[in-house]
Computed example of a mutant assay.
Amino acid sequence: MSLADDLADAARDEIDRACTLAWRELAKHTPWGDTFEGFTPLGRAVCFERSYLWEGQPGEDIRVEVHVYESKDYEAGVRLTRSIKRETV
């Protein structure tokens, strides 16, 4: 498996985890972001960035961004984005 594939697998796993909370739970903490060190599925040491941002105005959909990269090569990392739709309650 190539480095790019390994990073992509790690990014997909991380964005799946990042989207497990419901809009209502995330809205209390948006905007928010964090960077931490971890490992890819093949055991490579990488950095994970996770951000929760408003898509537009506060209270609208939440944009989830994940970036996984080796510390020596930030630009070669994999970025994924998803949206969590605002709950209409």
Score class of each variant (00 low, 15 high):
residue 37 E to M: 08
residue 15 I to A: 07
residue 52 Y to E: 08
residue 75 E to K: 06
residue 86 R to D: 04
residue 30 T to K: 01
residue 31 P to T: 15
residue 35 T to P: 01
residue 54 W to G: 02
residue 64 V to N: 04
residue 72 K to M: 08
residue 47 C to L: 15
residue 34 D to E: 11
residue 34 D to V: 12
residue 10 A to Y: 10
residue 86 R to Q: 12
residue 17 R to L: 06
residue 71 S to T: 00
residue 88 T to Q: 13
residue 57 Q to E: 12
residue 18 A to S: 14
residue 72 K to S: 11
residue 79 R to T: 12
residue 59 G to N: 11
residue 4 A to K: 10
residue 1 M to G: 10
residue 38 G to M: 01
residue 15 I to R: 02
residue 78 V to C: 06
residue 75 E to G: 12
residue 39 F to T: 13
residue 22 A to F: 11
residue 74 Y to S: 01
residue 44 R to H: 10
residue 60 E to P: 06
residue 8 A to I: 02
residue 47 C to I: 04
residue 23 W to A: 03
residue 47 C to F: 08
residue 83 S to Y: 14
residue 24 R to D: 07
residue 80 L to F: 00
residue 16 D to E: 15
residue 37 E to A: 15
residue 51 S to C: 10
residue 58 P to E: 15
residue 40 T to L: 01
residue 9 D to F: 09
residue 20 T to K: 09
residue 77 G to T: 00
residue 51 S to I: 01
residue 85 K to I: 06
residue 36 F to V: 08
residue 71 S to H: 01
residue 46 V to K: 00
residue 32 W to C: 06
residue 58 P to A: 14
residue 78 V to S: 00
residue 65 E to V: 02
residue 4 A to M: 05
residue 15 I to W: 08
residue 81 T to R: 05
residue 2 S to V: 03
residue 60 E to S: 15
residue 36 F to D: 15
residue 85 K to P: 00
residue 16 D to N: 10
residue 51 S to M: 03
residue 21 L to K: 15
residue 41 P to M: 08
residue 11 A to T: 08
residue 60 E to F: 02
residue 66 V to I: 15
residue 44 R to Y: 09
residue 81 T to I: 15
residue 72 K to C: 05
residue 85 K to G: 10
residue 29 H to E: 09
residue 79 R to D: 04
residue 16 D to V: 05
residue 36 F to A: 10
residue 84 I to F: 12
residue 47 C to G: 09
